[in-house]
Nucleic acid binder design. Structure first.
Lengths: 219, 219
DNA sequence: ATTATGTATACTGTATACGGTATACGGTAC
DNA sequence: GTACCGTATACCGTATACAGTATACATAAT
């Protein structure tokens, strides 16, 4: 006898609601003006309020949503200073990742990065969302390859906070394309094995992303 | 008339439960063998299960507790590899903080750090908890001074995950005292304004903390 | 017309009820 | 005694009920 274990974890409806909400935000089905109301969502999903509430509160704690005093949750809107700090935090995570990868100088990892970049940069339908997703996938891959689950978790949370900025901002495609094209150079630096240079390069890259972002918020 | 606004936020019982649980863990009132059961906690706190459940789930998502398949939550016990990754993540956060502070070279901030270190290193009752708290306060101050709320949040979450390791480990006092004494040197490097050296120094310091930790886990 | 006030409505937070699953335990067959 | 099985118990996840607070709107007072 060799049957697989079926349920290793406690299952929760709230997790599914959470995922659905994250996807809905990423696909711009929830806009900055929408108010997410527990009862409405619950009837829509054909479940009770409890798991809906749990998912909403989780997103609130993660800084994606904010609870309005008059009821309902909405996408948290960062101010410019918060965005600056968020990019600084991203630099911490991704800079460290670059250091780790540069120290290891693992050819498989380097090759994986190059592949990922080539694949993701090859965008067919040039929408802001697609640029956004490609960029996300590339940056996430850097962290995934470090194998550090906490760095990955921090990046995910950080990226979640940023969703509302990126998805509902108005960056021009041409700028996005240019920004997306600058990833391969980062791999070259990492491949050289210079961990300080790698950190500096990634930091610089993220700083440029921030400036691109800010320029378009000022309009 | 100039009355202060009373309730700017939605208040929730779950937040109080959360705080109480965090404090209880930090004060070693909850041990690694304890099983936290929703119903038991609820009757103990004289409230219903709902807010207790919310607080427990939040701590689960933060990686402090883990839900046992057979019911109840317990302190999450990291393995050695996870501890290593956690320290690596801390280095990301605190290394970036050091870079920021070194770049600014603000004399007020430098003075604040020195004050904090002197105050916290002056421990009256030499218990493991007290060393732990002092170390926490010093490291947190570095991040607080950057003014970056996300770095601070990440440090808090990271530190939360580490509570169970530190509090129930068995590091000798003498080692802790030595480790605690090495903070002032970090400030000196930051004061020099060399951001790379600052990052390296902090990384090195955290690496030493990790090795101290690991040495005592192997017993 | 504008301001104040009462009342309905919208939503929330907390408590409780209910059904299901997993462990614990005690009895029965060998 | 040991292996197996059935039932009791513990605990959870989800649904629902209930009470309190904030907004909206209509009505009354100036």
């Amino acid at each position: 006898m060799a049957l697989k274990s079926i349920k290793p974890e406690r299952r929760r409806l709230a997790d599914k609601v959470y995922e659905q909400l994250v996807n809905a935000i990423a696909n711009r089905e929830i806009s900055v003006n929408d108010r997410l109301v527990q009862e409405k969502l619950a009837t829509e999903l054909q479940i009770s309020r409890t798991p809906v509430r749990e998912a909403l509160m989780r997103l609130e704690h993660e800084g994606v949503l904010s609870a309005s005093i008059s009821g309902g949750f909405r996408l948290y809107q960062m101010n410019k200073e918060e965005i600056r700090e968020l990019y600084q935090a991203r630099a911490a995570i991704e800079g460290q990742a670059a250091r780790i990868l540069a120290t290891r100088k693992n050819p498989d990892e380097i090759a994986d990065l190059r592949e990922t970049i080539l694949r993701e940069e090859d965008i067919q339908i040039k929408t802001v969302q697609n640029y956004f997703k490609a960029n996300h996938n590339i940056h996430r891959r850097f962290i995934e390859l470090t194998g550090n689950r906490f760095l990955l978790e921090m990046l995910n949370v950080t990226w979640g906070k940023a969703m509302a900025i990126h998805l509902f901002g108005s960056i021009a495609e041409v700028d996005l394309a240019k920004s997306l094209g600058s990833h391969m150079a980062l791999v070259d630096v990492i491949e050289s094995g210079d961990k300080t240079a790698s950190l500096e390069a990634v930091t610089q890259h993220i700083q440029e992303g921030f400036e691109l972002q800010i320029r378009h918020l000022e309009d």
